[in-house]
Design a protein around this nucleic acid. Structure first.
Lengths: 204, 204
DNA sequence: CGTGGCTGAGTGATGGTTCATTCAGTCGAG
DNA sequence: CTCGACTGAATGAACCATCACTCAGCCACG
């Protein structure tokens, strides 16, 4: 069976197996939780032998890391690119919220891994925190600071705290969506979050 | 073989052992994560034999449940009591935020268990969600609805969504506080969260 | 004594990881 | 074109470290 990509290397579609294992792991982790998932489950789901998993990943934990790393990397670079096209800080925040919820809303299993499984240990949280998360929060924060300089956002508040609140709100939307039995659209929540964050809940 | 810690006191003092095990479990879970914690670790930390743990708890999982149940029960009933004393919905929200952050801020280890360990599996999250969490969110929501009826909060927004945003913001404050190397006070964040939630970030 | 709280070594199951083996596919020689 | 040597990706049974949980006794008190 000649798979595509044959000319460059005669190997049978190299990246495919690694990719299959990652997808399988997302599915299995989402279903059983990281600690209750057996490597054998992942292998079976990927249609691969147990040992094959170890040709592509050093350990079970490295699989979880890879899922996280790959996703965050794509998300951040994509996010930055999109933000360049926008000048109004309010619009920028809206775009961040939309991208955030689109991405998670488009892949429920990945969302479960992100919202639930990645939170399951301080150890992982700390790595998580140190790596992509700080960068992501920084992106939000600097957008807010930009808005403060431009005079559209209040200057009397701490941009970092505001960024955390914004992130926390989005994060909770996502977590709630995952745990909810009801199947509603996640993306439209972005506008509601933005409305409240920008204007507050108080009647004027 | 006389185990170390022999006898500080010769009194078994009834409920003490159960309590000691729970405290020990909080400490051990906070330190190693639920799945990486051995029952033997908890027993040692509690100054008790492995088997003794099973005189008080059916399983390792039941220990985690007990920690959650006891804490939430106390928090909610205490919360309700305090809210009765306040009429202004804005003040009520502020009180909720303060209580929330006070409780977690006062016991870092308990906070780690709540913010990190309890999130570690969909299974647990669902139980968690079904039980106390829905009630807690309902408390916030009805306070917001109260404010809408009273005309102090905007009526054009969804109280449930606003409640989630509020909770999400508090939750993120707590999680960030735990993961942060810096040791700052958690409670004062309540006011900042409230300010943004009530008034928004937009310059008027 | 005897009763009941407590002990902690033992056990059985589990599951991450390894590695000897297979075999599909490649390639140079004839 | 064919054949045999060779390669290394893939396999999956077996290994073995790790724990949650059990239970046969111990001891202190009344």
């Amino acid at each position: 069976m000649r798979s595509a990509r044959s000319m460059t290397s005669l190997r049978p579609a190299v990246g495919d197996k690694r990719e299959a294992i990652l997808r399988a792991a997302i599915r299995v982790f989402a279903h059983n939780g990281y600690f209750n998932s057996k490597v054998a489950d992942i292998a079976r789901e990927a249609g691969v032998a147990d040992g094959t998993v170890y040709l592509y990943f050093k350990s079970k934990e490295e699989i979880l890391h890879s899922i996280f790393d790959r996703t965050v990397e794509v998300a951040i670079s994509e996010g930055r690119k999109q933000l360049e096209q926008i000048s109004d800080p309010r619009r920028k925040l809206r775009r961040i919220a939309q991208l955030h919820l689109e991405r998670l809303g488009a892949d429920r299993e990945l969302a479960v891994v992100f919202q639930v499984e990645l939170r399951g240990s301080t150890k992982f949280m700390e790595e998580f925190s140190a790596a992509g998360f700080a960068e992501y929060l920084g992106l939000i924060r600097s957008t807010i600071e930009e808005g403060q300089s431009a005079g559209v956002f209040r200057r009397d508040l701490n941009a970092k705290v505001a960024a955390k609140i914004f992130f926390g709100a989005l994060d909770e939307m996502a977590t709630n969506w995952i745990l909810s039995k009801r199947r509603y659209k996640l993306v439209p929540m972005a506008d509601q979050v933005l409305d409240i964050l920008l204007n507050g809940v108080s009647e004027k």
